[in-house]
Amino acid sequence: MPNPIDPQLLNQLHDIQLPQAIGWWPLAFSWWILILSITSIVIGIAWYIREQRRRNAYRRKALKKLLSIQSGELHPAEKIAKMNALMKQVALTTYGRMEVAALQQQAWLDFLHQKASYISQPDCLADCLQKAYAGPVGADIEHFQIENCARYFAKWIKGHHQ
């Protein structure tokens, strides 16, 4: 029986051979499912954001036009009349001609309130609209009333229900 501590025997021993490390490729089935799920979610979110931007393009255009009307050098009655015409245009775009075209005076204000009831209408809105369409008499519309109406119109454009 050979001596277990014999140096010749120890010299004949080879190093331990470790197996190769397990690689990432090919991926396991669960990794493919995860990649597919994450890709689908990202594509879905991108599509949703793009669709929302497309659907709300009229809001952005209307807000730009409202700002240009508000900052323009127009008679106060003309400003209110143009703002109201813009609101009608937005409502026609959103709700259709059958529902909006015939609305005027109190019915128009009720419609605006109904479609965005959480936005409070300024007290001067009905008075301003009436004065705006009364002709040259509409000159007594105050600057703060125009600002209140413009602020309300901007909030309504941003937040009305579809």
Rank of each mutant, 00 (worst) to 15 (best):
P26N: 07
L27M: 13
E147A: 10
F144K: 05
Q12V: 05
V100Y: 06
L86D: 08
A150S: 15
L63T: 08
D140M: 02
R55E: 10
N11M: 14
L63E: 00
D110Y: 00
A134G: 12
D123H: 11
R59C: 02
C128N: 05
L66V: 06
W25L: 14
E78R: 00
W31L: 10
E78A: 12
K88I: 10
L74H: 11
S37A: 15
I80V: 15
N84K: 00
K61S: 13
K131W: 08
I43G: 08
A28F: 07
V137W: 01
A28V: 10
I80G: 03
V42N: 04
L66R: 02
Q70T: 11
A107R: 03
L66K: 05
L13M: 12
K155S: 11
W24C: 07
D15K: 07
I80R: 00
Y95N: 07
A81T: 09
K115H: 13
L34R: 10
A21M: 10
Q105I: 02
A132V: 04
A62R: 02
K65V: 12
P76C: 09
Q121W: 00
R53D: 04
I22M: 03
I33Q: 09
G44F: 08
F153M: 08
H75K: 05
K61I: 05
Q106R: 09
P19M: 04
L66P: 00
K158P: 01
R151Y: 03
F153Q: 03
L86A: 07
I69M: 01
Q8T: 11
F111H: 11
K82P: 00
Q70K: 06
A126R: 02
L103I: 01
A81K: 10
A85F: 02
W24D: 14
S37I: 14
S68E: 15
L109F: 01
L92Q: 01
L129V: 06
K82G: 00
E99D: 15
C124H: 01
Q162I: 11
D123L: 13
F111E: 05
T93N: 14
I35Q: 06
Q145D: 10
Q89V: 03
I38T: 13
P2Y: 03
Q106F: 00
Q70N: 11
I141S: 01
A116Y: 02
Q8M: 09
K64Y: 05
G44K: 06
Q114C: 07
L103Q: 02
A46D: 03
I146T: 03
W47Y: 12
S30K: 07
F29G: 09
Y95G: 07
K88C: 05
P122R: 07
K82V: 02
G159W: 03
W156N: 04
S117H: 09
S68K: 08
E142Q: 15
E51G: 05
A77S: 14
